[in-house]
Amino acid sequence: MSVDKNTVAKIAHLARIKVPDASLEPLVGELNNILDFVEQLNEVNTDNVAPMTSVVAATMVLRDDDITAGDCRDEVLANAPAAEHGFFAVPKVIE
């Protein structure tokens, strides 16, 4: 499988990274090199092999339902590029 310019443009949009048209073509080459490389995996027979779901063989521990965090608006907003009246502010969204 390989990607073309359209596919790269599409995934760049999915990833919300602006890619100028002029940069699409070189990216096609770079990404296809990587994809060709990973294509090797097709040689491996993985019938009846379960995908790895966790690196450690442990079961997930359930947390108690206690309020242990929050009430720290100043910390939450401390690094925000734009915050007004206790909200994060972003360019207006039209739904």
């Binding site: 947390r63 206690d66 309020i67 242990t68 965090a69 929050g70 009430d71 720290c72 608006r73 910390e75 939450v76 907003l77 009246h85 206790g86 909200f87 994060f88």
Partner: peptide
């Protein structure tokens, strides 16, 4: 996360770092 769920609080006061 351990932040509270109550309805109708001041904005961003029931928000943890998570």
């Amino acid at each position: 996360s351990g932040a509270a769920t109550a309805f109708g609080s001041e904005p961003n006061t029931q928000v943890s770092l998570v």
